[in-house]
Design a protein around this nucleic acid. Structure first.
Lengths: 108, 108
DNA sequence: TACATGTATAAAGTATCACAGAGTAGTGAG
DNA sequence: CTCACTACTCTGTGATACTTTATACATGTA
């Protein structure tokens, strides 16, 4: 899908947090999973900036673990603040989604 | 709804174009309609920048018409390029929406 | 050695929306 | 007549998030 960039703003971060919430994971894997989910053009650079933001905002805890291949992986786990933020994220998404579909279906 | 700003990026422009596509209209009215649709915090300034962009990208045609109250209104009407872009916009939205709901419902 | 894959990071660039303020135009109150 | 209020447009500055690009490290393979 082309030109999705602008629409991803404010959405991608929530997706990353959602993936982290399911199980501890790291940047490279998150990128691969997002690609598999259909966000084909998302690259590491994008995901890492999101991860740094999540860490700075204290929504996740991090741990370094050795990798079999390449430099150590930096694992991210969600914390309570993160879970709260994730819930608010989905509330925002649900709101937007519902309004947008009203407009699309010409109900509004 | 709070903190919707980032999620509106890439979405608001499509909404404005959709409203214009239904019937010729002007900035102030578009703002009021968006507010009524649930996007309560959208202000004129935001809408005008979008309108200028749509015009610059040649997706709309404009006409000035006198108003019964206040300065002349600048009406915007969609053109063929605009209709094409609008269709692509909804395709993007449908794609994103479907992927996001997959993630939300843990289907992915 | 060269190259591919896995992994992390940072800087510079771009686009969109928010905020705030100014300016134009008509109407009704005092 | 002036003031306030509503209707209406325009613009500049700034915040934020995603993209692009480049660097670097580790290991396995041709």
């Amino acid at each position: 899908m082309e030109n999705l960039t602008e629409m991803l703003k404010g959405v991608l971060e929530g997706c990353v947090l959602e993936l982290i919430s399911r199980q501890e994971t790291y940047g490279y894997e998150i990128t691969r999973r997002l690609n598999a989910l259909g966000f084909a053009d998302v690259v590491e650079g994008t995901v890492y900036t999101i991860l740094i933001r999540l860490e700075r905002n204290k929504l996740v805890e991090t741990t370094k673990k050795p990798s079999e291949m390449g430099p150590p992986r930096k694992f991210f786990a969600i914390n309570d603040a993160g879970r709260e933020e994730l819930q608010k994220f989905w509330e925002r998404w649900t709101f937007l989604s519902s309004k947008m579909n009203d407009i699309k279906e010409r109900k509004a």
